[in-house]
Write a protein that binds this DNA or RNA. Structure first.
Lengths: 187, 187
DNA sequence: ATTATTTGTATCGACTCGATACCATTTAAA
DNA sequence: TTTAAATGGTATCGAGTCGATACAAATAAT
């Protein structure tokens, strides 16, 4: 019956994080989901900054996400540009104010207060436990993993130490490989 | 910078749990928050089954919660009764169909699939990590803990092995002490 | 007795969200 | 090469969340 305890804890943690996101976004007229979209765009790579990727990440419908993005665009927090090769695709880049806002708001102070109470060892344990659960949840339900290149089966390292993605057939910088990707697949 | 990783994981876990709750509730016309309210009412004690307690638990406003409860009442999933001693207070009891629904829906299948992949030891580790983080989040921000009697400073055990709450001055059964309470305070 | 606090509801406007329909572009098939 | 299917995205509608404000009723404090 450990499942029930785990479920309860995750549910409650999610609520509390949402409370923090609500507080953080409130003074800028942002809903929790707005904060989360901005957050996602700040940690995803250039192949994953599209409305469909956001849709997959949040587990909502594309229509819903489209509306949310319209709000963020109107607030000048992100800029839309059309892909050069595929004109159906829109890229979403955080504007300067959008980037500043994310850096300002996240992680929320409510959450940082909590971490301040935890030792580095405790944080490490929590981190790995969360990742373990998350991975189980994703693989068991065939959901996209949204991991970083380092843990992706498409990631290759060239002779001179640079990175290369075998899926999009493009070289990647070290910074690139720290970002999450919608095409990510576990090794 | 472990905080960022932890934040990301919790955020994502929260999203996925919500996806599960959305799927589970959809066929009954329920929003994720509906599912969560029903869940709460299925695990709280008789001093904590009020709109204000739900409000504190979810971190929303009482007006919002009032509307949500109205929907659940209209669907005959819960029954409202007025407290005998304090006529301002409403008690929310799950109806038979409400109880059956919670038992049916939770934990969501999306979540159960994940747990099926984890060993008992892994589940134990995850459980304690989650509780550790949750406790830090609650105490660091002076939020209500909503724990069970066993971990409450008001809980007393009488000579004959029965339980007694020092706050409400009432005897409790063993079953009672397994439920969460809005007046709970860590020892 | 009077005031303040607590519990809950009602109403408003902004927004989320899913469902459906629709358009433009790209890709696959014939 | 023409046609059909799939993909990415937007527009619109209705139900519902959500916070803010205002309000009523019961209780507690003074």
């Amino acid at each position: 019956m450990k499942q029930n305890y785990i479920y309860n804890s995750v549910e409650r943690l999610g609520d509390l994080l949402k409370v923090g996101a609500r507080q953080a976004g409130a003074e800028h007229g942002l809903q929790p989901v707005h904060v989360e979209v901005l957050h996602y765009l700040s940690i995803c790579n250039r192949y994953s900054d599209t409305p469909m990727a956001v849709t997959d990440y949040l587990g909502l419908t594309k229509g819903t996400v489209s509306q949310t993005l319209k709000v963020l665009e109107k607030k000048d927090l992100l800029v839309k540009t059309i892909d050069k090769n595929d004109k159906r695709i829109t890229h979403l880049k955080l504007s300067d104010s959008g980037q500043k806002l994310v850096a300002d708001l996240l992680p929320t102070s409510l959450f940082m207060h909590a971490c301040a109470q935890l030792s580095p060892e405790q944080q490490s344990d929590i981190d790995s436990s969360l990742k373990l659960l998350l991975r189980a949840l994703l693989t068991a339900n065939n959901l996209k993993t949204f991991g970083v290149c380092k843990t992706c089966r498409y990631n290759q390292q060239t002779d001179d130490g640079n990175y290369f993605c075998g899926l999009v057939k493009q070289p990647l910088t070290s910074d690139d490989t720290q970002l999450i990707c919608r095409e990510h697949e576990d090794i």
